[in-house]
Design a protein around this nucleic acid. Structure first.
Lengths: 225, 225
DNA sequence: TAAAAAACAGGTAGAAATACCTGTTTTTAT
DNA sequence: ATAAAAACAGGTATTTCTACCTGTTTTTTA
């Protein structure tokens, strides 16, 4: 608990980065051992580093690497893949509700808005280091309102089967209250074909009627409501 | 940040409560100033208390008051109403996914499983006291999977109309994939009547079929998925 | 390049839902 | 106490869906 926590900072604005480092240095249990001004060099820097940070504070909006976007999200994904032990706190200027959800799902362990007070940062680092995650209450509300069915996960059925592209397509149209005939028109196929797909959908999802299909579609992020 | 945090404990198992108090006493910034072994006496105890806790650790499963259930959920609701400044951390033996979502929406600020390590408790108290919330990563996952459309908002229709109780009831059953006949059986009414309600539902919600009804029901929290 | 999966399309039945109509009884609110 | 709303129940007709069956062609994967 009271052991030294190694912290890394990935933040393109120097002043902010140094300011953060200064703040963090006031806490004896925290030591900043890594800094980077851009996301795309983080991995190689870590590879040549003798000490790895326990917790990495990563700015959400980092400069791209040429054409390639490389912000907090990309850093998160890369870190999770190559340095799964490093815990990640995203720093953002504001709460982008949709994004937070994605970040958490990509493996970020915490999320801080930049106007939080220093105590929060300490709490966040400590929490993330010791246990798992840190989310402030407003952010949590944002997640409550927005998460759940944003990131498209492959939809698996009861039997572990997977819906085909066409089946998902038709399921989406079913959810839009279209009839078999309307779906057929829209997809330029025979109503019989649509019918076949509908039956497969009922079978695969274990549903008895459209109510079941719609709920399945929502639960499995095939449609967003 | 370093000011003394007054903590209250609501936990029916004495040993666990005292153990927790002992652990908390090792942190100089935390002082336990309130204890209760049951939920239903918390309010009056607080009213006669000279100092109010900043953070209350509340066990999820507390003994009922006679017939009346009075667990962590009820305590949370009561505290939020009468002592809105007190921040609440729920302690639970395990992660009941559905319940966590409800608790957070009822106003709890944090959630701890009882097998967490002491450092987590300190972090949780500090976080909750200083900022807002504390949720561990597993719990967060649970929330991601279960929250979203739990809080029941009065369902308003396109025309601003309101669904009647019976209509909502039938809508819920429709969402459970029951047929008109099955719904009639379940409610001990004629299929004709169910039919009438279904038609009203379609009319009021501006839907063409069950797909529309289900989506309406989910959007308006008439059913939870 | 075979084999498997997906997409396609047709037939037939029956079940269920939708879209209208009518009316009575019960509950709620003014 | 009266009016309005809700819940109840029936008729009729049509549309749509569900549940089976069959098969071919195209695409994907091993």
């Amino acid at each position: 608990m009271e052991s030294l926590i190694y912290v890394g900072l990935v933040e393109d604005h120097l002043l902010f980065r140094k300011g953060m480092k200064s703040i963090l240095s006031t806490w004896p249990e925290i030591e900043v051992i890594f800094e980077s001004g851009e996301g795309y060099t983080v991995l190689e820097k870590l590879h040549t580093s003798d000490r790895l940070p326990h917790v990495m504070l990563v700015d959400l909006s980092l400069p791209p690497n040429g054409q390639q976007e490389f912000g907090g999200k990309e850093v998160t994904v890369a870190l999770r893949k190559h340095f799964p032990d490093i815990r990640i706190i995203i720093l953002s200027a504001h709460e982008d509700e949709n994004f937070i959800a994605q970040l958490i799902e990509h493996g970020a362990h915490g999320y801080l808005v930049k106007d939080c007070n220093p105590g929060e940062v300490r709490d966040a680092i400590s929490s993330v280091y010791n246990n798992g995650s840190y989310i402030n209450i407003r952010t949590l509300k944002a997640i409550q309102n927005n998460i759940g069915r944003k990131t498209k996960v492959r939809s698996t059925t009861l039997a572990g089967e997977t819906l085909t592209k066409r089946e998902e397509e038709i399921l989406q149209l079913v959810c839009q209250q279209l009839t078999t005939e309307q779906i057929a028109e829209q997809l330029f196929i025979s109503p019989r074909t649509v019918n076949g797909h509908r039956n497969s959908l009922l079978e695969k999802t274990g549903s008895h009627n459209v109510a079941g299909l719609v709920i399945y579609a929502i639960k499995n992020n095939i449609v967003s409501i």
